[in-house]
Structure formats: structure tokens, C-alpha cells
Amino acid sequence: MLVIDKFSRKPIYEQIIEGIEREILTGILAEREQLPSIRELSLKLSINPNTIQKAFIELDRAGVIVTSQGRGCFVAADARMRIREKFIPKIAEIAALAAELAGAGVDEDAVLDAVREAYANHERKETKL
């Protein structure tokens, strides 16, 4: 399910990290589940394995995955929580964005509605699964 856009200006390893995080969040990768091997991913996506390894190292450092010597990489037990922690700082982005919108004179409720809508959609998706 990982999709990598080689022509995007976003570095590939970032795309991988985001992709894996997305898979964990959407439940495609369950907690404690083993991640596909670097080799597998490299061949499937046609990407330099070192790049993938770099992504894994990042994920490991963030605690999202756990590397076990000789056995492979596993989704951490509390991966979702970790990811969530990564996303929390992004609230500042919303704040900045809100400030921009406020400065442009956009209606506050419209913004809040949008936020609620997004969360509601997500709930629906979750229950469907």
C-alpha cells in the first residue's frame, strides 16, 4: 500500500516514513506485526534499500517500530501513540493556518466546522473497519 512518488520533491525516505505511519494508523499494519523486510520493500518499490533503511532507522528512533537483531522490524506496541505524539506538534500548524484565515477574515465557525467534519469522517471510517 505504500506509494512512493519519485518525482515529488519530498525526499523518498520521508515518503516512506509517512507511508508506514499511515499504514499503522489505518490498521493495515497492526501493532506488534512484522514489517516487510527492507529487501522486499526495495524490490517492490524499486527503491534504494539504504533509503528504506534510513526511514526505518528514523522510525526506530521515534519509537514507532522496534528493530530486533536478526529477526526483523516490528511495529511497536504503542506505535499509534507514538505517531500521535509526532502529530501533536502539527497543531501549531493549524494555529498558524487559523491565524492566516483569521487575518483573511474567514469565519471562525467555518474553520471549526471543517475541523469537526474531518474528525467525524475519520470516526466513520474507523467504525466501518
Partner: peptide, 8 residues
Amino acid sequence: QVIYSDVC
């Protein structure tokens, strides 16, 4: 692909 496989 072959190179990637060898690297791994």
C-alpha cells in the same frame, strides 16, 4: 533490482 537485492 539485482543491485538492491545484493545490497540487502
